[in-house]
């Protein structure tokens, strides 16, 4: 299937500052793609390029197989910026009417689109209210609706959940799922990683303008994080020294230490992901040696830990010129 978004060697410079450095991005059609990165990583620059608002210094962008031009971006993309503004002196329906007119809609079609979008974002009840009287969450939904007036197949949302309360976030998440079910490809950037983990099908982590890892969320987590860390709780304090000695002898254990707040809790870092049998073997060895284990849990890294670890390692690797291929298809790829 044709990719919804594809960038090849995408590079952008702001004078001497390299904002994007040969970025490879592949987003499949009909998925919600989470774009993660620290401040200044190049997320907004990427989204602005995809929306046709910036011309890249180098590289190629394809949207649904079509080479990016300003005209193609206007037709194929709905864009919601990070800091979006609203026209305070307009009513809710006038706001959508204005943007619909910008896309050449007129007459009965124009009225129909405005009504449908108000229903979709659950603002039909606020139709005649002035935009300035809406809550932040409602304004966010209205702004999202504005990006949909021309029924684009691709939606680019820059930090759509920022500044929203938990309820508004849940509503937004539901709305994004509805849009995905309508066949839209959604690419969104966010700092709220737990948010992305719940709604995204695929993620990409960008740092210093380079793609660190990209792929389906489950595969990324499995490949990078499964069993990389385990937590062990020992019933008797006297067994802690023995347990530490036994674990340090294990070839796969890279580090082990007691939690400062709870000396009977040990945190074990493994040098590579462990499968369930390996976990069971370690546990059996401890029990056989007489260590009273009350709790053992191999824990996957959550998205936040993954993000922090990967962006930190990129910082260390910065300067190396290794190009990173990112594949959002079947296999997740990691920059090492």
């Amino acid at each position: 299937m044709t990719l919804a978004i594809e960038t090849i060697d995408l590079t952008h410079r702001y004078k001497k500052l390299v904002a994007l450095d040969r970025l490879h991005l592949r987003v499949e059609q009909g998925c919600i793609y989470g774009f993660i990165g620290p401040n200044g990583a190049g997320k907004t620059t990427t989204l602005r390029i995809l929306a046709g608002l910036l011309t890249p210094t180098k590289g190629e962008v394809r949207l649904l197989g079509e080479r990016l031009t300003t005209r193609a971006a206007q037709r194929l993309v709905g864009y919601m910026p990070d800091f979006f503004g609203v026209y305070d002196d307009l009513r809710v329906w006038e706001y959508l009417d204005f943007f619909a007119r910008c896309y050449g809609l007129r007459g009965a079609r124009l009225r129909q689109v405005v009504d449908e979008l108000l229903d979709l974002v659950d603002l039909a009840g606020k139709r005649d209210a002035f935009v300035q009287t809406l809550s932040r969450g409602m304004q966010q939904r209205l702004c999202l609706a504005h990006a949909l007036v021309h029924d684009p197949p691709i939606l680019l949302l820059d930090e759509p959940a920022s500044g929203l309360d938990p309820r508004a976030r849940v509503e937004l998440r539901e709305l994004l799922r509805t849009l995905r079910d309508m066949g839209k490809t959604i690419m969104l950037s966010s700092h709220i990683l737990s948010e992305l983990a719940e709604v995204c099908d695929a993620i990409g982590i960008i740092d210093h303008g380079r793609m660190v890892i990209s792929g389906p969320l489950a595969e990324v987590q499995q490949q990078i994080a499964t069993g990389a860390r385990a937590r062990l709780r020992i019933a008797r304090e006297s067994d802690v020294v023995l347990a530490l000695a036994l674990l340090q002898r294990q070839p796969l254990v890279s580090a082990v230490g007691a939690a400062p707040a709870d000396p009977r809790s040990l945190v074990i870092d493994f040098s590579e992901p462990l499968d369930e049998e390996q976990c069971a073997a370690i546990l059996a060895e401890l029990v056989k040696a007489g260590v009273a284990v009350s709790e053992f849990s191999a824990r996957s890294e959550n998205l936040e830990e993954l993000f922090l670890r990967l962006t930190a390692s990129v910082g260390q690797l910065d300067g190396q010129a290794a190009a990173v291929g990112a594949n959002a298809g079947n296999t997740a790829s990691v920059r090492r």
Binding site: L90, E94, F99, R101, H150, D151, P152
Partner: peptide
């Protein structure tokens, strides 16, 4: 698929200005 974009019949900015 995206709507084919046509040129606006009336300048939208003008319509907005007239309203506000």
């Amino acid at each position: 698929m995206a709507t084919q974009i046509r040129g606006p019949l009336l300048n939208p900015i003008l319509v907005r200005e007239a309203r506000t």
